[in-house]
Design a protein around this nucleic acid. Structure first.
Length: 494
RNA sequence: UCCCCGAUAGCUCAAUGGUAGAGCGAGCGGCUGUUAACCGCUAGGUUUUAGGUUCGAGUCCUAAUCGGGGAGCCA
């Protein structure tokens, strides 16, 4: 008999038919001597399958004692209508095989709730819990919806490199990739109190006195990268955008969807050192087209996950965030608010709200400002555009006012920025000037500039953080619970 | 990286500077077509680590480590 998944049994199982089901025991309720109930879960759906094990089965007394929370079993049985409440059908076991025990005195997952902090230390076992099983299915449904959205619209899925030698992607600190002998190269910045670190060569450089301290190895003046694997300094990608533009300016609408790495010492509920990002890039798009796509994208993928994972989302609504379904429906059903950065600053300044940081044109908006706009003022997602050029990246198209760029951020309640995008600067001369203005060397971007030198076109794109989207969709507070095995500063176990 | 808070039984948490406890989980027993099952009993501790103050420290002080929340960087 072929194994049947529990989702299929619960959805389609007809009383009178026989099945082979396998999975992990969530709980056992024993009726002395007579029979026992097993709650079986195989991850195929949120619900457990109730299995009734009769006391007359061979070796019942021995087996049932060894079947504890966490044990794995294979069961042949008959589907019967369930006389009890809570399930349409259940399985009456005719044969029971114990595949693996889980010693109840040491198995970490008990028949009770656990804190997420505790489960993060058991990342290999937490997918066996309600919350993380649901997260895995929602994450899968979300990724499916993302591909579907772009494929339906004729976008090409392109693979941009994970390893890059363009040290100048401009989106954050890179992890270094090297085959050089690290042991001889010095200690990382995380090594506290080591006297050797006092003479950091960057310490006196005002350009590096940003609030973000890189965790990557500090460059040693003596290192000759021409002897390294790629013949020059290499790192893990912080964005596939620049390479994405190369393909957008050749084969039309494209998107990338892959892992992204930032070696920033960010310790928040919204940051990971390794995360997944979706980056579409479209030729002949201007900012308005970019915004329209981004909005359609966010609303569509949320709607599809709601359609495909109703049980999982109901669980998140019941146990994690009571306003979840309401807020998701609000996003799906309403147009996003669109306004310029300048207009947003005016709203904030006239709000009468007391902010810890003052609102001033030219400064980037703080978390509290973004939250006020999305959670208090508009109570729905907001797309802000035309930010001051001084606080945005070099590749964003300059407006005629000389003060702003064609940038757009999609802000959502609870999470803040979920999408960052822009129309790209397609004018060669303007881009070169802008690079210099940002303190970059145009020579380092020679191939990126050639995209403007030869057959340049207006184009635009954006990036969406997958795990932040999962925070939005599931209501989970900490982004570390939205990725199977989180990587954050000081932590990459598993 | 900065600010704040925390670390006590397997888990979640109590405990005036003076004998370390509860709930849940676990083990055993009872009861029951049960479903966060229920009832009783039992076991379970170098109070994160290293120093210090004190007659005496889970409690006060210093440092380290780890964790959480907030901020910055950003997706």
């Amino acid at each position: 008999m072929a194994r049947t998944k529990i989702a299929a049994v619960l959805r389609d199982g007809q009383p009178g038919t026989t099945v082979d089901v396998r999975g992990w025991v969530r709980t056992k309720r024993e009726s002395k001597g007579d029979f026992a109930f097993l709650e079986l879960n195989d991850g195929s759906c949120f619900a457990n399958l109730q299995v009734v094990v009769d006391g007359k089965l061979p070796d019942y007394a021995t087996l049932i004692k060894q079947i504890t929370t966490g044990a794995s079993v294979a069961i042949d049985g008959e589907i019967v209508a369930s006389p009890g409440k809570g399930q349409r059908v259940e399985v009456r076991a005719t044969a029971l095989r114990l595949l693996g025990t889980a010693d109840s005195t040491t198995y970490p997952l008990q028949k009770k709730g656990h804190s997420f902090e505790f489960l993060r230390e058991k990342a290999h076992l937490r997918p066996r819990t309600n919350t993380f099983g649901a997260m895995a299915r929602v994450r899968n449904a979300l990724c499916y919806a993302i591909h579907e959205f772009f494929q339906d619209r004729g976008f090409l899925y392109v693979h941009t490199p994970i390893i890059t030698t363009s040290d100048c992607e401009g989106a954050g600190q890179q992890f270094q990739v090297t085959t050089l002998d690290i042991a001889k190269a010095g200690s990382g910045l995380r090594a506290k109190g080591s006297g050797t670190e006092k003479k950091n060569p960057d310490a006196a450089d005002p350009a590096s006195s940003s609030v973000t301290q890189p965790l990557a190895l500090s460059p040693q003046p003596s290192i000759d990268y021409s002897t390294d694997f790629f013949g020059k300094k290499a790192g893990l990608t912080v964005s596939g955008q620049l390479e994405g533009e190369a393909f957008a300016c050749a084969v039309g609408d494209v998107y990338t969807f892959g892992p992204t790495f930032r070696a920033e010492n960010s310790n928040t509920t919204r940051h990971l050192a390794e995360f997944w990002m979706v980056e579409p890039e479209m030729p002949f798009y201007e900012l308005e087209d970019d915004m329209a796509l981004a909005e359609d994208f966010v609303r569509t993928i949320i709607r599809k996950v709601m359609e495909r994972c109703p049980d999982d989302l109901q669980f998140f609504n019941d146990r994690i965030e009571p306003t979840l379904l309401e807020s998701l429906k609000n996003i799906v059903d309403h147009d996003f608010i669109r306004l310029t950065y300048t207009a947003a600053v005016e709203i904030l300044q006239q709000s009468g709200q007391k902010f810890e940081y003052p609102v001033e044109w030219g400064h980037d908006l703080q978390s509290e400002h973004e939250r006020y706009l999305t959670e208090t003022h508009f109570k729905q997602p907001v797309i802000l555009t035309d930010y001051p050029r001084a606080i945005k990246s070099f590749y964003m198209r300059c407006n005629e006012d000389g003060k702003t760029v064609r940038a757009m951020d999609v802000l959502v309640p609870r999470i803040g920025e979920i999408i960052g995008g822009s129309q790209r600067e397609e004018r060669y001369d303007v881009l070169v000037e802008r690079m210099k203005e940002c303190g970059l060397n145009p020579d380092d971007y020679w191939w990126y500039l050639e995209l403007r030198k030869y057959g340049t076109v207006p184009h635009a794109g954006f990036g969406l953080g997958l795990e932040r989207t999962l925070q939005l969709i599931t209501g989970m507070v900490n982004i570390r619970d939205c990725i199977p095995f989180p990587r954050v500063p000081g932590s990459a176990e598993f």
